[in-house]
Design a protein around this nucleic acid. Sequence first.
DNA 1: CCGCATCCTCATGGATACTG
DNA 2: CAGTATCCATGAGGATGCGG
Lengths: 211, 211
Amino acid sequence: MSRSYGQYCGLARALDVVGDRWNLLIVRQLLMAPARYRELLDGLPGVATNLLADRLRDLETAGVVERRLAEEGNAIVYALTPWGAGLREPVEGLIRWSTPLMVRGPGGDRFRAEWLVVALPALLGDKPAVRRPSTLGIAVDGHLLQVAATRSGIAVSPHDGRDLDAVVRADASIVLGLAAGVLDLDDTRGLVDIDGDEAAVRAVFNPPAPS
Amino acid sequence: MSRSYGQYCGLARALDVVGDRWNLLIVRQLLMAPARYRELLDGLPGVATNLLADRLRDLETAGVVERRLAEEGNAIVYALTPWGAGLREPVEGLIRWSTPLMVRGPGGDRFRAEWLVVALPALLGDKPAVRRPSTLGIAVDGHLLQVAATRSGIAVSPHDGRDLDAVVRADASIVLGLAAGVLDLDDTRGLVDIDGDEAAVRAVFNPPAPS
DNA sequence: CCGCATCCTCATGGATACTG
DNA sequence: CAGTATCCATGAGGATGCGG
């Protein structure tokens, strides 16, 4: 564990726990689903294996992460504790704040479609409630995600095979711009390929109200 | 600036900008008010002066902080840009998340009453709307803060001399526990000294509904 | 004084190799 | 597969210097 700030302040104490390098990115991975050590290494390109082991130990000691035995016998699975899962709110806040950094596009950075499972609910969550339930597919970078929009909220996950009302195919930066409301479907003709019920797409990627 | 994560992910890019040590604590200080270099040093106990200078340069380059010339001539004042001020939401989220770390009390950590100016709105903000406008004083650690509760929200600032409906005197950990809703006024008799209109205090530090 | 820049030491991070 | 061990580069922390 790194050096404490030694300040009796909620932000400083939170950062004493999750402020070290890689910690919040590990939390991001576990917000998607519990994962094995190897899956974490794959989902965190650039992390050194000794650092991942150190950080998981720190987070476990702090009560953010817990080790579980996988259902199939003796494999170890890492998962967030209930308190650790409470980091979803500040993590989503940082993701929303980062929108100006993301619309520039990926540049040379590595990208995993699974990261959108955390980002899209953060960006779509504060939109007006959808008008009618629907399930969209998001095809990006060769992967297919599904966005299940109901009156009680929006859930994003890898596609599980269910029927889709529509499939949207676009680059990640376009999908993020649409979800954040800084792009709208009418301004991205030719960059977004919609297959199926376009109205269902518009119900989720709600274009900003014209001014 | 430290090494980039090299991930095209909103969280990773946000942390590329504000994830370095001390950065979010600098933002915390500037969320209270623009400040001079010396005030930042005072409000960030433990920071090395060269690090503060480095971080301010990084944050300015990234567009989070801007230097201004103070009104009285040639002094430099640091302030958040509009985008930088958008960090209030994730910072408040981390403060709410840190509640279990704060109710344990300060231990040996240093404390500044001014930090409550950021923490209290974060903890009080999701409470039910106050029933009637009031202005409270919070006396903690020899300092007096004021909490102005209106139907449109809650504002916390150093006391500016206006009339107060009531003054609450308690340790910082008690004030934070009350604001977070993990303590209520009836369980802290003897630890909280209320001077004035107790009903006005209860309207802000709303005790949790009995189960 | 204020607003930094320099210098030095040591803890932390990163890459790779290795082991149960 | 799930981590340790090792080595080196980098960054943090503290003291001090220095021009305005």
